[in-house]
Every structure is written in structure tokens, then in C-alpha cells.
């Protein structure tokens, strides 16, 4: 089946999964404690994150070593492709839940709360979007699309181009170009994050737009927030890939580690387009 040994590579017993599970043990209990104001929770969260980072380094380190040692043949490579594709698909569905919530509230709930029937409960509510809902009186200003968000769109779209250029360079074994374009992608990614942090602080400070600003605030922050979280992950992954490239990893015909991250980056990009259109524009 696979080339070389004729065997599918089945890794030796590994401690990483149980390390990962203990991380989630601390994170799960820690988060529950923290949210209920039990001080031990913070320590548990700290321990959990520490173990998680240890696990990620160790586990992915093993994978990188195995890959460089040539243990993965064609079949394994295909497995990684299937695996990554379905992982990204599951992420798409996660965002779909939030986009669905946005759609539902905006198109169904808010008009319903404002209809004649509901005058019985919310006599003065007139609906419209953006809104904080009929029961939240604090005013806010919605986020415009054409300032920073448009710039951010530009940043992410360019980063999609640069990562593709890096990929081409890798395939043609032009290592300096590979590193340069990869670095450019990382810089664009982190700039995007910086802009978003600035945007959030602007929203809180000047627009009075908060997580607690009803339907608009909830969907705005949760959608952009989860997206930002994914950009962070993607940028970290790109950074790791950068160092692996610098260390001479990946070959023109064998570099799924790179491609997987690039796919992920494109996914993050596409989600942003959705956000830009449905959260900021319309």
C-alpha cells in the first residue's frame, strides 16, 4: 500500500493523548470554577493551558519528526488530506451555527418582536437592525464597514495571496522566496489582529458597543471574536511552519504540514468575507 515499507505507518504508543486529556481536565473544571467565582479555578486554568501547550509542542514535534524521517508515504499523506478537510468542514459548521443565529435573530426574531401582536409586551419597540432588542435601553453606535473593517478585509485577502505565493515557491524549491512570502503572510495576519484589537477598544470606548448590547452586540462580538481566535491560531500555525521552513523542513513534493496550514488560512479568509458581508455590510 504505502510506499517503502509496505505498511501503513501506525505510530508507537504515545503519552501525548493522555497529556492532552489531563489538560482538558484542568481546563474544563478550571473554567467551570472560574465562572462561578471559585478562586482555585484560575490556577487550574493556568495549569491546564501550560499542559496543553506542552502537549501541542510535544505532539506536533513528534509528527514533524516522523514526517522528516520519511515515515509518511502516499497513503498517509492522503489520510492527512482527508483528515484536514473534514476538520475544516467541522469548523465551517461551527461558524454556521453563529451565522444561523445572526440570520434568525435579524430576519425573524426582531421583526416579530416589533409586530402588532407583540405590542402587548413591547409597546414601544419598532425593530430594525442594528438593535439591542426591546428590553435593553442603553444606546450604542453600530460598527461601520468602510473604515478599519474594509482595511482588514484587504489585509486578509492579501495574506491569502502571499501564502499562495509561498506555496508556489515551495513547490519550485525557491526557499528564500518561500520564507519571504510566509513571513509576509504572518505579518499581515498579526496586523489584522492588531487592527481588530484596536477596533474592539474603539467600539467599547467610543461607540458604547459591548458584548451586552443585545442581539447586535452578541452576534457582532461572538462572530468576529471566534474568527479572531481562529486567525490567532492560524497565525501561530504559520509561525511554526515558518520556523520549520527555516530549519529546512518540507520538500517540493512532500509538504502536507505546509498545505494543511495554508488550507486553514484560506478557510479563515473565507469566513472573514462572510463576516464582512453579513456582519458589517448589509
Amino acid at each position: 500500500m504505502s510506499q517503502g515499507t509496505g505498511h501503513y505507518y501506525v505510530p508507537a504508543p504515545s503519552k501525548w493523548p493522555i497529556v492532552g486529556s489531563s489538560a482538558l481536565f484542568f481546563l474544563g473544571f478550571g473554567a467551570a470554577f472560574t465562572m462561578n467565582k471559585i478562586p482555585a479555578g484560575y490556577y487550574m486554568l493556568g495549569i491546564g493551558f501550560a499542559i496543553l501547550i506542552y502537549m501541542l509542542f510535544g505532539w506536533f514535534g513528534d509528527v514533524a519528526r516522523e514526517s522528516e524521517a520519511g515515515k509518511y508515504g502516499k497513503v498517509e499523506d492522503k489520510s492527512f488530506r482527508w483528515g484536514m478537510s473534514w476538520f475544516i468542514f467541522s469548523e465551517v459548521m461551527f461558524f454556521a451555527a453563529f451565522f444561523g443565529a445572526l440570520y434568525y435573530m435579524r430576519v425573524l426574531t426582531v421583526p416579530e418582536l416589533a409586530d402588532a401582536e407583540h405590542d402587548l409586551l413591547w409597546p414601544s419597540f419598532t425593530g430594525g437592525w442594528p438593535t439591542a432588542g426591546p428590553g435593553i435601553t442603553e444606546k450604542f453606535t453600530p460598527m461601520g464597514a468602510w473604515g478599519l473593517p474594509a482595511f482588514n478585509t484587504f489585509l486578509l485577502l492579501s495574506s491569502g495571496v502571499t501564502v499562495t505565493l509561498a506555496h508556489w515557491a515551495l513547490k519550485e524549491n525557491r526557499r528564500p522566496a518561500l520564507k519571504m512570502w510566509l513571513l509576509a503572510t504572518i505579518v499581515l495576519g498579526f496586523t489584522f489582529l492588531a487592527c481588530q484589537i484596536y477596533e474592539y477598544s474603539h467600539a467599547y470606548a467610543d461607540l458604547n458597543l459591548k458584548l451586552t448590547s443585545g442581539a447586535y452586540g452578541s452576534t457582532f462580538y461572538m462572530l468576529t471574536g471566534f474568527h479572531g481566535f481562529h486567525v490567532t491560531l492560524g497565525a501561530i500555525m504559520l509561525t511554526v511552519i515558518y520556523f520549520r521552513c527555516a530549519a529546512g523542513h518540507f520538500k517540493p513534493e512532500h509538504h502536507f504540514g505546509f498545505e494543511g496550514v495554508a488550507w486553514y488560512w484560506h478557510f479563515v479568509d473565507v469566513v472573514w468575507l462572510g463576516l464582512f458581508i453579513f456582519v458589517y455590510l448589509v
Binding site: A97, A101, T109, P134, G135, I136, T212, S218, M222
Partner: peptide, 22 residues
């Protein structure tokens, strides 16, 4: 469940009519 969690602890209004949720 994430929406439920933020509704419970961080003041979002996904499932709360007063905030335009449902």
C-alpha cells in the same frame, strides 16, 4: 452550548427576548 455559556456569564442575548434574542 457556547452561546448558552455566554448568555449565562457574559451578558449576550442570544436567547433572551429583552435583547432581541429568542
Amino acid at each position: 452550548v457556547t452561546m448558552l455559556l455566554t448568555d449565562r456569564h457574559f451578558g449576550t442575548s442570544f436567547f433572551n427576548a429583552a435583547g432581541g434574542g429568542d
